[in-house]
């Protein structure tokens, strides 16, 4: 998956109106909540075969941090 594709997927999952960049501050978005975590956990599992937890996601500050969690799954 490319970075652009990942950011588009992320925007769709969060159902936010404005496009995301790799350095958008997630905590500033009202959509960055436990609902988003649940969707992302399923997405990481399906797309990258990776098991992430609520705590791992909570520690992510930006989409760039989420990309790092994919262990090279996003290039």
């Amino acid at each position: 998956m490319t970075r652009e594709e990942f950011l588009e997927e992320l925007q769709g999952m969060l159902q936010c109106e404005s496009a995301l960049s790799a350095d958008t501050v997630l905590a500033d978005m009202e959509e960055w909540d436990s609902l988003a975590f649940m969707v992302l956990i399923a997405f990481f599992d399906k797309s990258f075969g990776l098991r992430v937890t609520f705590d791992m996601l909570k520690k992510c500050r930006t989409p760039e941090d989420l990309i790092s969690l994919t262990n090279g799954g996003v290039a």
Binding site: S34, F37, I41, D45, R51, F54
Partner: peptide, 11 residues
């Protein structure tokens, strides 16, 4: 704790 319960379920 919804997050912990979700983690448990998926694990």
């Amino acid at each position: 704790d919804g997050g912990k319960v979700f983690n448990f379920t998926m694990d």
